[in-house]
């Protein structure tokens, strides 16, 4: 039992509709959970709540039995934009979180080296952020998050701004790293294919109000291939579920 989301709801001031309503979900230790759903359904809001960057209007979220009351290094977030600091170079960026944890300089250097080599950026450690490509920036952000060695990794569409080849490469890297480290990963994405590629479990959110529509267990063997028949079957099943949601949403818009 790792991450427990208990009857969470979130309503934003000035809007009548609930962004999230009564979300309950238990994420086991070491699980890879993907959250998918139509845009604007509150996927990112849910992730921000788990991160502690936002507070729910109802319900609570617990990590290992302790209620989450603010952001912390045990739940590092990797954002859609890399969120690296432009006044630091690659190595300094990766070491930032470890500095916050007050790790010894020696420990910082050895972890930074390990994870920068893992994401194949050790040669670029002295580069500034504006000197490296988008894919390298996201890999730097991934190394920065992994260095803290927290039990939970939260990812908010981390690859959505990248081209297809870079994305495929990073997905494979992430899968490998997850298998090696056994972290709990909560991964928000709008791409069903990405979810089927990565997840043990896929949570489909519905829109207006955002609540859990369905949960799919994905037991395909890894590494997964997105042209295998089984892969396509699962993808189709989930896509149908999500698309019905999008259609419903479009119809509502039209009716109003």
């Amino acid at each position: 039992m790792a991450l427990e989301i208990k009857n969470i709801s979130r309503t934003f001031e000035g809007s009548k509709k609930e962004t999230l309503r009564d979300i309950s979900l238990t994420i086991e230790k070491g699980e890879f959970v993907c959250i998918v759903g139509p845009s604007g359904c509150g996927k990112s809001t849910l992730l921000n709540l788990i991160a502690g960057l936002d507070t729910p209007t109802g319900g609570e979220i617990c990590l290992d039995g302790r209620k989450i009351s603010g952001p912390g290094a045990d739940r590092v977030v990797m954002f859609q934009e890399h969120a690296l600091f432009p006044w630091l170079n690659v190595l300094e960026n990766v070491k930032f979180g470890m500095k916050m944890m007050k790790l010894s300089e020696k420990e910082q250097n050895s972890r930074a080296e390990h994870y920068l080599k893992l994401v194949k950026l050790w040669e670029f450690k002295n580069y500034r952020i504006h000197e490296i490509s988008g894919g390298m920036r996201q890999r730097t952000a991934l190394a920065r998050a992994l260095c803290l060695d927290g039990p939970v990794l939260l990812m908010d569409e981390p690859f959505s701004a990248l081209d297809k080849q870079t994305t495929n490469k990073l997905r494979a890297d992430l899968e490998r790293i997850w298998e090696e480290t056994g972290k709990t990963i909560v991964f928000v994405t709008h791409s069903v294919e990405e979810a089927v590629f990565l997840a043990n479990r896929i949570v489909v959110l519905s829109d207006n109000p955002g609540c859990i529509k369905d949960v799919f267990q994905v037991d395909l063997p890894r590494p997964r291939h997105n042209d295998a028949v089984e892969f396509l079957e699962v993808r189709h099943k989930i896509l149908t579920c999500v698309e019905r949601e999008v259609e419903k949403f479009a119809k509502e818009e039209y009716d109003h």
Partner: peptide, 16 residues
Amino acid sequence: PIYVKAAQTMGAGKLS
């Protein structure tokens, strides 16, 4: 704001 959020999720306190 994303810089602040990123730093907070890495455990930065108010002073840092």
